[in-house]
Structure formats: structure tokens, C-alpha cells
Design a protein around this nucleic acid. Structure first.
Lengths: 373, 373
DNA sequence: CGCTTGAGTGAGAACGTTCTCAATCGCTGA
DNA sequence: TCAGCGATTGAGAACGTTCTCACTCAAGCG
């Protein structure tokens, strides 16, 4: 009835006394290990019930060496990609009796390192990390050397002794670009969402060497975009590759700039769904129609991608499954399976909807469907 | 260099030995409490560095009684409302040195109870909960009685000894409804997103008593909707209140049904953004235009609400701030502030965009703006 | 010089479990 | 009856910290 907080919960010792047995026996009855007589068990459970006993996981973890906790390090839980992946991780973890400790790193290397330290001190049993940068290799390796298994999500860090889960970013971007090429587009812009740190590194003639570009997915996707163009005999134009920020407004501004070029793109490939939204917004402001005037393909199949107009064609990643698989790999290792690192590449799916269509054709010839030649 | 996992990290005892001091002194040097000579401190820190010492938070928590962990219980982290609120909680917690343990309850009462138990055993210092139902009152009160402070987020549980943070749902829904009424709408549908459990309880003549409807926000919002209608002398029509599921497709189906009624609504109030998206999708399929044929107002200002066409008018909640305030209230209590429960109602904001307009008027009279009479 | 003071130190308790190990119990079979 | 055996039990160690307390030592003071 009352709300008076009694700070201290009864320990197993109190329960044992109440039940008239030793703490060892009480522990066995409550913890379900060793062997206890039916009579003792009943007495202990009844006493525990009566006193409102709650085991102390901390003490248990001290002994068993397992905290039943998984650490998850992501840039930003507000990003639907990561919240969905986290859902996958958490579901797998929960199902097997693990809990999840979440930290946002904000793509900040020093925050990430600090978090790695904190989670090590908390003795998490394993770690799922979407690393900000390959520069964190040593900090991550330290964690692994300390005996805490790590699974990398979405991004890779070369030379790290960890499992990874992601998609084949290069192939996925190449496929998307090829589809636009097949629709007759020859001038295709790439919206990477990168920032000032990335911009100069993307600005290489012919996008040479972009595949070696940090831990993020941008490098691999840019490489796929370049591959598709080059294989079609098209020289990638640096001014069509934009790294002007990851917010919607940034994408809108970039779109406006791109379409103001002397030889503007007829199609845009946006590397995430928020960027695609910015493109649509800019097009509307410019009085251009999608897909009649400009075609658009996005990444990640957001909730709203199918419901907006035009319904957005996207490269869909199996995001939930990515997280779930990361959780599975991690728990396997936690359970002691010692094996060489594995690298899971889950398949992407191109979802064709209505935002990409054949390049501008004379009026009257543009049908309602967008089949390729 | 190598990756051979050495499972055991050095304890403070090993560090003390290496530094030639007692564990007590080592603890003081590393933990920053008590008094240590500069010489000892240096020796200890150097030894710790050399051995790669990492404190064990578990042991520390055993003694101090603080785990520096906050538990967060939400229905689904994939829901943008909760992922954003969690971001607010986590930012406040992190800034003050706390970590966040996350559990999804899936609106499942038994899962929620189990999670409450698990988090109690983990001795979290406090709990932010978006409770599934008022039926969990006793389980929550048990947690509070055990000395773990609780803050309720978004939803309320009458008679519970806990702080709450949310918006004034009744007033917000009333305001949104009044705006539609001011635009001349007399037949306004309400999409609650509820399910079969809720449906019969909403189906009362005149929506009487809906304000007393569990912990969720639906009841209060339905009451606000009703209040606005009644005050305008309009009898709420039960068939215009839909509780046919919370997914986008459910909302689309509901919209189709509503617009097939003999006297169909001219405006729709959708209680979350995903539902609003479903409405737009259905309208498109039906060949109806928004806002020309049907006006729409949603709840929650999603990323895409401004970028789609038509830009969506919404009731915006200060979601991040809701979470941050919950975190602040909780940490205040963790730090021992004993006070009566407080109930924070943060202000909502009606964001007028283009999806709501004056009710159908003869062609030519419908201006581009949607100012009220 | 003797006394007080306070910084610095270490031994050992405490936190609440699980684990180890030896002792006891109750039964079976010769 | 008694040895043998497995089930059950309890004492006490262990986990790795922080906390309590008593002790040393040097400086400051009259």
C-alpha cells in the first residue's frame, strides 16, 4: 500500500535463514543448479516469495564471469537503419537471455573510444559496433584482446580480428547504377551524404581508389557507381559526385546545385533514404517532376518510400536481418565457439517502383511503365 | 600483435603488487577517492597502464550500490517516437555518466513484467517506462517500493508513485479537431490505430468515457476529438472512429472503408504519422486528392512530413525533449532528491502545412491558402 | 621537548552471489 | 548388520572492488 522506499532488498542470506537452510542450499534452490531436495526447495521458494527476494545479478556476474549483456555502439539510434538493426540484435539477444546496453557515438571517434572503455569496464560479454572510422582499429583490437568478442555491423575495419555483417555495397551500388544506365541515362549524379572530411577524398579523377575509403559504406558504393559507369564506357564526372552533408536540407541544396550545372544529370542515385527525400523536395521547389524530368533511386526501404508520390525505387537492405545475424554471430562467440572471423554479406533487393524511368523522350512516347529497352 | 584472447584482465591486486603498494592505495589512486601521495599515484597509474588494467564496474557497483545504469522500457525502438525519445534519455544519461539498458516490450504485458523483474535484478538505478497498460500498476509499484525510481514516458498509470512526462493529449487532439472544424469540416474521421482490444471500448455512443481508457494516449486523444465536436454542437458518429490496426496498410484499408460510407468524412485526423501515410496512400489509390478532396492532419512531425506532397499538417510533439526531461527527472531522484511525484506536460505545436484545407467549395472559390474564416 | 594534527598507508571487512569440498543422510545389497 | 553409494547439505573460499579503521610519520605548535 505505502510507497516508502526500502532501499535494501533482502539478500540470499536472509532468505536462507527464513527458510532454515544454509545460503548454499538457498542459492541452489533459487539458482536452479546443484541438487536440492523438494522439501528444501519449497521452503526456500516460499521464503523468497514472502520476503520479495530479488537475485543480485551483479554478484552472480562476479562469480560466473558472464554479465548476459551485449554492448551496442551505433552512430545514432534515431537513424532508422540503426534502430531497425538494433531491433534485430535485441530480439536475438533477448530470446537467448541477454540484455542490450546502447551507446550513441555520433560518428565521433573520441566518444567511440570512451564508450569502448566504459563497456569493457562493465564487462559486457560481447559488442556489436558500427565503427565510425577504420582509425579505431587499435581500440577495437584491444577490446578483442581483452577477451570480448566484437562483431562489426554495416561497416568494415580491415585487419581486425572480428566478424562482420553487412551487404555488398559495391555490387549494390553498381546494380542500381546499371539499372539507371539501362533506362538510357548517361548523366547520373551520386549523392553520398558525406561531409567536408570526405569531399576532397572523393574528388579524384575518375573516382580512382575510392574503394579504400574508411570504414563507412560510402567508398564502396562510390566504387560500384564508378564501375558501372566505366564498364559502360562513361567517364565519371567529379562534379556529379556530391558530398555536401547527410541532412535532408543538404541533399536538397546539392540537388539544386547539380541541376543548375551546364550539363545537368537526368538521374540521381542517393545513398540513403533521407537524402532521396531531400532530392524530391528540391525537385518540387524547382518545378521539376519525378520521374518525368529527373529519375531517382534511393538506398534503404523506408516506411514511407512506398507511400509517397512518386513511390520511390530503392536498393533495399535486409536491415533487421543484418542486426539479427550480428547478434547470432556474437552470441555464438560468447558461448565459446572459437573460429576464424566470418564475413556475412546479406543480399540486397532492388525495389522497382515509380521514381526511375527512361530518360526524357519526346512527349507522347513516354508510357506509364518504365520497362527497359 | 596477436589476437590470442586472454580472458582474464588484471585485477587491482595485481596492479598494486606491480606498483609496490597495497590494494587499498591502488584503489585510491585509480578510483580518485581518499588521499594518495603523488609518488604512489604515479607508480600505480604507470603499473595500470603497463598491465592494461581495466576496473571492474561490477565489483564497484556491489560496494557503492550504484550501477550507473538506467533501464528504458519501450514498446518498440523502431517506432520513431521512441527512438527519438530514447536519444533524449541517452544524451542526458550519458552526459552525467550513466548508461542505458534498453528493452522492447512489444506492448506485451507479460514481456513488460518479465523485463521489470530482470532490470530489478540488474539493480538499475532507475527506470524510464512507456507502460503498455494501466494493468501493470502493481508490478511498477513493486519496483518503486524496492527503491528504484520510475519515470513514466508518454503514458500515465493512475495512482502510481512515479513522475510522468508527456503532452496534454486531450488538449492537443481537441486543438487539431477544432482547426479542422474552423476550416468548415463537419464530418471528421478519427484514425486511432488501436486494435481489436480497443475497438469495442471506443464504440460507445457519443464516445462517452473514453478518457478513462488504459495507459495509452488514444483514450485522451479520442476525448479531445469528442470534446471539440460536442462543443461545436456536433454529435460524434461512432462509424467515423476507426481502430483497425496501427500499420500503414491498416490505415489505408480504414480510409477506404471510411470514404465508402454513405456520408463520408471530408477530413481525417490520424493519431500518428504512419497512419497518416496510409491515408495518403489510400487516397491516391482511390483517385482522390489531398487536400482538395479530403483534408488530413497527422500526429508527430516525422522527417518526411515536410518533404512529401502534400506537405503534411501535424500536431508536433517535443519528442526529444520528452525523453531528455524524463532522464533528468529520473537522475534527480537517483541522486536522492525525495519529492512528491511531478507530472510534466510539454507543449505541442500545430504545424500548418498543406494537407488540410477548407472543406470542398464550388470550383473557383478555393483559394491557394487555407486561412480560416 | 612533548603534544596535536593530518596526510598517507595497509589490513581486513563488506557487498551477494556461486563454487569447492568435505561431511552427512538415507537407502541398497551382500 | 554393515559397507557402499549417490543425493543432499553446509562451511567457507572466491570474485574485485570500496570502505572502515587503526597505525605511522612528519610537521606545526606551545
Amino acid at each position: 500500500m505505502s510507497g516508502s522506499a526500502r532501499r535494501s532488498m533482502p539478500s540470499i542470506e536472509v532468505v536462507a535463514k527464513e527458510a532454515g537452510v544454509s545460503t548454499a542450499t538457498a542459492g541452489r534452490a533459487l539458482g536452479g543448479y546443484g541438487s536440492v531436495s523438494g522439501k528444501s526447495r519449497e521452503a526456500v521458494l516460499a521464503a523468497a516469495e514472502r520476503l520479495g527476494y530479488r537475485a543480485n545479478s551483479l554478484a552472480r556476474s562476479m562469480i560466473t564471469g558472464l554479465t548476459h549483456t551485449l554492448g551496442v555502439l551505433v552512430p545514432d539510434i534515431e537513424n532508422p537503419f540503426f534502430s531497425r538493426a538494433l531491433r534485430g540484435i535485441a530480439d536475438v539477444a533477448h530470446e537467448r537471455g541477454w540484455e542490450v546496453l546502447l551507446v550513441n557515438t555520433d560518428e565521433d571517434l573520441s566518444l567511440e573510444r570512451k564508450a569502448l572503455g566504459v563497456l569493457t569496464e562493465r564487462r559486457v560479454d560481447g559488442l556489436v559496433v558500427a565503427p565510425t572510422d577504420t582509425a579505431d582499429r587499435d581500440a577495437l583490437q584491444d577490446v578483442i584482446d581483452a577477451g570480448i568478442p566484437v562483431v562489426l555491423l554495416d561497416r568494415r575495419v580491415p585487419g581486425l580480428d572480428a566478424d562482420t555483417v553487412g551487404i555488398d555495397n559495391r555490387a549494390a551500388a553498381k546494380d542500381a547504377t546499371e539499372r539507371l544506365l539501362a533506362l538510357g541515362h548517361r548523366s547520373i549524379a551520386l549523392l553520398t551524404g558525406g561531409d567536408e572530411k570526405l569531399r576532397p577524398r572523393l574528388a579524384r579523377p575518375g573516382l580512382r581508389g575510392v574503394e579504400r575509403l574508411g570504414a563507412t559504406t560510402v567508398g564502396a558504393r562510390a566504387a560500384g557507381y564508378r564501375d558501372a559507369l566505366v564498364e559502360s564506357g562513361i567517364e565519371p564526372r567529379p562534379e556529379l559526385v556530391s558530398a555536401e552533408g547527410f541532412r535532408r536540407e543538404d541533399a536538397a541544396a546539392a540537388t539544386t546545385r547539380l541541376l543548375g550545372l551546364p550539363d545537368p544529370p537526368t538521374a540521381i542515385l542517393a545513398l540513403d533514404s533521407l537524402l532521396a527525400l531531400g532530392v524530391l523536395q528540391a525537385l518540387r521547389r524547382l518545378g521539376l517532376r519525378c520521374p518525368a524530368d529527373v529519375s531517382l533511386v534511393g538506398f534503404d526501404d523506408a516506411d514511407w518510400a512506398e507511400a509517397i508520390s512518386p513511390p520511390l525505387s530503392v536498393v533495399a537492405q535486409p536491415v533487421y536481418e543484418l542486426g539479427a545475424e550480428a547478434g547470432r554471430l556474437l552470441l555464438d562467440r560468447v558461448h565459446g565457439t572459437d573460429r576464424r572471423p566470418v564475413h556475412r554479406r546479406l543480399p540486397t533487393r532492388f525495389v522497382e517502383r515509380e521514381s526511375a524511368r527512361s530518360v526524357r523522350t519526346p512527349a507522347g512516347l513516354t508510357g506509364r511503365d518504365s520497362t527497359s529497352p
